[in-house]
Each structure stands twice: as structure tokens, then as C-alpha cells.
């Protein structure tokens, strides 16, 4: 399906992928030539526990329409429980984002193992479509208005 760039709103989603599971899983999706929307630009980190809520807010306030944090399934974290810390931060961040008026579909924490290429593609696909129907976030413009 060829998408014409100028016509549709293309969500800009920043992704934080942990190198042991999610990033490897995303690579696998590519190696398997699975086609999925290119709207999540990945930033590689060692662990989902490295993701500082500051990064998420920085992304949203700088022009991103959404943020995806992807790490290892609970119990499988290479660093034992970095992903548990990620959950702790995410849950509280979610409450604060709700107060800010950022729809919860825009910031997601997902578990993708190194062998789940297909799953990664589907997560990106569903997140992209959900945010596409929500529309652009345009946070900077909203603040200045």
C-alpha cells in the first residue's frame, strides 16, 4: 500500500527499546521482512529501566505525538528487574500525563522479547493507528497559544 506523504497525518513516535529484548525483536521483524508502519523511531538503551520520565516529557513537548517504551517481559530482564522499575515509573507517569491531558494511547510501555519480531510490528502498527486517529499532539503550539 503506497502512502502519499502529504495526505495523511503521520504520527511521530519516539521509541526507547532495550537492547537485549525489544531492539533485538525489532531487528528480527526487519530480518523477517515484516512490513509495518515506520512511525516509531527507535532509540537504543541497555534496559527499559534506563528510561527517565524526563525523556518522555521531552519528546512530547518537543513535537512527538507519542512515546513507546519497550523492554523485556517481566522476569526476563537481563539485569534482573530493570523492567520492574520501568513499570513503577510508567504507572506514576501515566497518572501525571492524564492530568496534563495527554491521552493514554500516546505513551505505552510494552514487553517485546528478542524473538517477538511479529509482535513488535503489531505493537507499532496498533499504536500508530491509535495515535493517527487521535491526531497530532502539537504540544509546543498548544502552550504558546
Amino acid at each position: 500500500m503506497v502512502i502519499e506523504l502529504s495526505k495523511r497525518f503521520e504520527p511521530k513516535i519516539v521509541g526507547f527499546l532495550c537492547k537485549w529484548c525489544a531492539y533485538t525483536g525489532a531487528d528480527l521483524a526487519g530480518t523477517s521482512r515484516i512490513k509495518y508502519p515506520p512511525n516509531v523511531t527507535p532509540i537504543r538503551v541497555n534496559c527499559s529501566g534506563r528510561v527517565d520520565p524526563t525523556f518522555v516529557l521531552k519528546a512530547l513537548s518537543s513535537g512527538a505525538d507519542g512515546v513507546l517504551i519497550a523492554g523485556c517481559h517481566p522476569g526476563d530482564c537481563h539485569y534482573t528487574n530493570g523492567n520492574v522499575k520501568a513499570i513503577r515509573r510508567f504507572k506514576l507517569l501515566q497518572r501525571m500525563l492524564n492530568q496534563f491531558g495527554v491521552e493514554k494511547e500516546r505513551v505505552r510501555l510494552e514487553w517485546v522479547s528478542a524473538s517477538e519480531g511479529e509482535r513488535y510490528a503489531r505493537v507499532v502498527e496498533s499504536m500508530t493507528e491509535e495515535i493517527r486517529s487521535l491526531g497530532p499532539l502539537n504540544w509546543k503550539a498548544m502552550v504558546e497559544a
Binding site: 500500500m1 526487519g30 512490513k35 515506520p38
Partner: peptide
């Protein structure tokens, strides 16, 4: 590659 050319349908995107 793995996270760009190999997952894209369209050259433009």
C-alpha cells in the same frame, strides 16, 4: 536496514 529498509513498503517513507 533491519529497522528501516527491510520494514518499509514505500521508498518515500
Amino acid at each position: 536496514r533491519e529497522q528501516c529498509s527491510w520494514i518499509s513498503e514505500s521508498g518515500e517513507l
